[in-house]
Simulated scan of single mutants.
Amino acid sequence: MARPDASDLAHRLGRQAEVVCRHYLSNGRRQGNYWQVGDVRNAPGRSMFVRLRDSPKGQAGKWTDAATGEHGDLLDIIRESCDLLDFADVVAEARRFLSLPHPEPEPVSRKSANTPAPSGSAEAARRLFAMSQPIAGTLVETYLRKRGFTALHGTGSLRFHPRCYYRPDEHSPTETWPAMIAAVTDLDGRITGAHRTWLAPDGAGKAPIDIQRKAMGDLLGHAVRIGVPGTVMAAGEGIETMLSLRQVLPDLAVAPALSAAHLAAILFPPELRRLYIVKDNDPAGDGARDSLIDRAGAAGIEAIVLSPEMGDLNEDLRHLGLDALRAGLRPQLAPEDVARFMSRAA
């Protein structure tokens, strides 16, 4: 695949070779310094080997199928596993993947890999996210679609865990429930925490438990990041609130901070010039809004508040409908952002 951008993209993917394999060749498994799977189209089996580290024998990401003699790099894996034909689509998918948050590489030492991470720590959050799977075809997708979400592109920061531990307090036995796992990342995309939303076994709603959502790790200043931020982005409290905004503005990067206190402290990307603050209609939301407006102004960032008709934007979406949500948000946006971000949804 000798095309412009191919060498650079393949090299960047090679630095995360194991993460690429876990994502696109999910039917395989790690064997020493190789990823072993059936073929480049992600069939179960053991005939194809992907090199996970640079060595005198070859670069990370190079693969060979012993059964067929086929060989290539990680761009070929993306092309074949996603059934893409045009090189432009392969490049777009590779760039999308590289923009997503990813857990830290697995420790090389077996001893360190088997050492339990401290409960609630950033390391425990990274391991939980690594053990989870993409949401396509899972109960998380079922749950989100029942909440009114049809635009789920760019949601690589959300994953599904089929049996996530739940313990209401230290005196109660541990239970397991399916859960939506959201990666909390810093501005460099490094996972610092995770947020769990426990779900009902059929995905129709949240689990019937006392505490349905809980965060872990280092959250202060960080957020769940959906989409790639540029000069304009939006920040708010809840994941579902911000996904609701993306139903109307599908190309706008959003950052759920998970609580009013953490929203007030969210860190700004250096290129940010306009920040939409999505508030919830409650006193905590008002306080977070005012604090964030002051911080944005001090940093030379224009702050614009987006307010719901009901309690939050997801209530608006579910009870009033997409057209009403769009009509309510349009006059609150900067005119240039209506043309830039709302064009596909108009």
Rank of each mutant, 00 (worst) to 15 (best):
D76P: 04
A261Q: 08
R145Q: 15
S343I: 08
K214S: 12
R12N: 12
R274L: 12
H262N: 13
N314P: 08
A257W: 01
A235D: 02
A346R: 11
L75V: 13
G38F: 07
L152Q: 10
L84R: 09
S47M: 08
S112E: 15
Y276W: 09
A117E: 13
E141S: 01
A113P: 03
A92C: 05
A183D: 03
H71R: 14
G203H: 09
R41C: 02
T142R: 00
E93T: 15
A124S: 15
A235I: 09
R190L: 07
G221N: 04
S307T: 11
A67L: 03
A179P: 04
G137P: 00
R3I: 05
D251E: 15
I211Y: 13
T192Q: 11
T241I: 03
G28M: 01
S132Y: 08
L306K: 04
R159P: 03
S26F: 14
D312I: 12
Q133G: 00
E336K: 14
M48S: 10
S157N: 01
T192Y: 03
R127F: 02
I78H: 05
D286A: 01
Y276I: 00
D73R: 05
R163M: 10
T197N: 05
G61D: 09
E170F: 12
D5V: 05
E315V: 06
I181A: 00
L84W: 08
L74E: 03
G221R: 05
S47V: 04
I135Y: 07
A10P: 03
A194P: 06
D73Y: 06
D186I: 09
K206V: 02
V338N: 09
W63M: 01
V338K: 07
N314T: 07
M48T: 14
E141Y: 05
V108Q: 15
R340N: 01
I301N: 06
D169I: 06
G217D: 05
D251F: 10
C21H: 08
A339V: 12
A122M: 10
Y165G: 14
M131E: 15
P250T: 08
A334S: 10
K62C: 13
G189D: 06
E309T: 13
R295C: 03
L75G: 06
R344P: 02
T138D: 02
G69M: 06
R159Y: 00
D316E: 06
S172W: 05
L267D: 15
L252V: 07
A88C: 10
P118W: 15
P116M: 13
A327T: 00
A183P: 03
R246Y: 11
A215C: 13
R273E: 15
L263G: 00
P168K: 11
P256Y: 02
G28P: 01
R295W: 11
L98G: 09
P173W: 12
S109I: 06
A136E: 14
E18R: 05
P103S: 14
I304R: 11
P270C: 04
E170T: 13
R213E: 08
Q36I: 15
R127W: 10
I304N: 02
A122P: 08
E104F: 05
A334C: 07
L139G: 01
P134Q: 11
D188Y: 10
G287V: 00
E80T: 04
D316L: 04
R51W: 14
S109D: 14
Y143M: 02
L25V: 03
S307H: 10
A324W: 04
P208Q: 10
L258F: 08
S132L: 06
R15A: 14
I211S: 11
R29C: 13
R213C: 08
S112M: 13
